[in-house]
Design a protein around this nucleic acid. Structure first.
Lengths: 147, 147
DNA sequence: ATAAAATCTCAACTCTACTTGAGTTTCAAG
DNA sequence: CTTGAAACTCAAGTAGAGTTGAGATTTTAT
């Protein structure tokens, strides 16, 4: 066990202030294994600076409606104990970019549908895939299914 | 009170099958006032066909992470008792399109940030607004704040 | 006419993502 | 060295979005 360098570690309050994430949420993320911190002799958390990056990505994920379990999975390759290397982060970012693109394409498709359907005022039960769910089938999961 | 035309109304099971939404969820949406149905003499729900459109939009909203309270607000102008007119729907779709565009722009911004930051491998603490939360301040709400 | 399938209501439970509070301990400044 | 601010743990509570189950009733098909 070595000492915790006060110049290179942040208290939970500092992290909360810098990231805009509540202390209670940081406790929660730690419970889920998304982040971690060293402890002082008096048991208080001291965060390595690179943890701020993880937290920022968690915030980003939240904005996109990505569940924390997915974030946990993306973070799995990142080391908890040392500062992640460039290639560590690159692995994460690759997954992330794919997720983002999927999300964006999905929205763009919906925008097109909305413009062609309700937007035009036709409300055609024949051509509208948005209002005619039978036309927009997904194999499984939520959403319309063939009957 | 008039009879319910069996040719123009759907049982909850039929609606569930056509929309892919569970019966229990339909009950729930009804509780929230998002949808409604007439009742048979024996108290079973019979949905007018146009309710399927509402439900489809609820599904769309869910895919985008839009909370049901927002959907309720968008639906406020729609009549529950009669088939909505073209202009009724157009009002809803205008709101919807704006929401969609906002969502898409937000994602596009994040994609750019991700490409410029983690993607390039620089991980610069100076230029990266994604990993350097202090640079991307929002006045209030979740997200980074000046300290 | 009767049995099977579908619905009904209502309450309770689940899961995610946190927040709040109580009671205690540690840290930092004067 | 003392004291107020900041942290700690652990349990319980909240909100959104449903799901599940029990027991009763209705509808549909034979």
């Amino acid at each position: 066990m070595h000492d915790i360098d006060p110049d290179d570690s942040l208290s939970i309050g500092e992290v909360a202030a810098r990231t805009g994430v509540a202390k209670s949420a940081l406790h929660y993320y730690e419970q889920l294994g998304l982040i971690s911190a060293e402890r002082t002799l008096g048991n208080q958390r001291r965060y390595a600076r690179h943890m701020v990056r993880r937290i920022s990505l968690i915030v980003v994920a939240k904005r996109l409606g990505i569940p924390l379990t997915d974030v946990e999975e993306a973070f799995r390759t990142l080391p908890h104990d040392r500062r992640p290397s460039t290639s560590d982060w690159r692995k994460v970012s690759t997954t992330w970019r794919a997720t983002l693109e999927q999300r964006r394409l999905q929205i763009e498709r919906l925008e097109r549908e909305l413009n062609g359907c309700i937007g035009c005022g036709c409300l055609s039960m024949k051509s509208c895939s948005l209002l005619n769910p039978e036309d927009t089938l997904a194999e499984e999961g939520p959403g319309p299914h063939r009957i």
